[in-house]
Design a binder for these strands. Structure first.
Lengths: 113, 113
DNA sequence: CTCCGTTATGCGTCAAAGTGCATATCGAAA
DNA sequence: TTTCGATATGCACTTTGACGCATAACGGAG
C-alpha cells in the first residue's frame, strides 16, 4: 500500500540576471501562443493582466533574446506572439518538467508507510 | 561548454493535512537535534523563535505522530529534542533531497547552449 | 521557595507577491 | 479621421510569510 505522504516540488530555470522560466511563466507563454493575446491569456489563467505583463517584461529581459513579441494597436487592438526562442524555451522547460514529474512520483513511491 | 542557464527547484513532503517537511523545516529539525534547544536552533539559523515554534507545531500536527518534543522549565530552562519519528523523517527527506540535487545538476547539463 | 533560562502565545509590523483600478497610447480598418 | 480593442504603466490595496516585542508559564537546582 502506498504512503499517505507524497513528494512535491517546484522547478525553474535561472539565468545570470534571475529567473527566466517557471511553471506559471511557461503556462502563460503557452496561452499566449494559443490565443495570440496577452490579455486573453492572462484572463484564461485567472491572472491579472498587470502581473502577466510584468512577467513578460521580466522574461524578455532575463533571456538571451526576447521570448515574446507584443504589438499595441492595429486590427483587433493589438497582438502578442512567441518568438522562435520563446517556443524553444517552452519545449525545453516542458521536457525538463516531464522528467521532474517522473522523479516526484518515483520518490513518492519510495516513502515509508 | 556549459549553458549560462541552470535548473533550480524546491522539494517538500505533504501529508493529508498539509506540508510536513521542506528544506527549512528539516534544517530546523537538524539544529534542534544538534543543540537540544528550540531557541538556540532558531537563532543559529537566523530564524525568529516565534516562527520556529510555529513550524514545530505545524510539523507535529501534520505528521502521524510528533517529530519534536518540547519541555518548558527545569534545568537550563527547558529542552527540545527529536522523537524517533523525527529522526527518521529527517533521514528520509535527506535521502530524497540528495537524489533531487543529482537530478537538478543532470538537467542543468542538458540545457541548450 | 526563589531563580533562571527556555518554552508558550498574543499582537502589531514589515516586505514581497499579486490584484484592481484608472488612464494613456497605439495602429489597422472602416 | 474616427473607432475599437489590446498593449503600456502608475498607484493603492490585499494577502501571506516572517519578524520583533511583550509577557506568561514552567520546573529542576540551589
Amino acid at each position: 500500500m502506498a504512503s499517505q505522504f507524497t513528494v512535491h516540488g517546484r522547478l525553474w530555470i535561472e539565468g545570470p540576471d534571475g529567473t527566466v522560466l517557471g511553471h506559471g511563466r511557461v503556462e502563460l507563454l503557452e496561452k499566449i501562443d494559443a490565443l495570440g493575446s496577452l490579455s486573453a491569456a492572462a484572463t484564461a489563467l485567472g491572472m491579472s493582466y498587470r502581473y502577466a505583463w510584468k512577467l513578460v517584461k521580466l522574461m524578455n529581459e532575463h533571456s538571451d533574446g526576447p521570448l515574446i513579441t507584443l504589438n499595441a494597436g492595429g486590427r483587433g487592438g493589438g497582438h502578442a506572439s512567441l518568438t522562435e526562442a520563446g517556443r524553444e524555451a517552452v519545449a525545453t522547460y516542458r521536457q525538463t518538467d516531464r522528467e521532474f514529474e517522473q522523479f516526484l512520483s518515483e520518490q513518492s513511491e519510495k516513502l515509508p508507510g
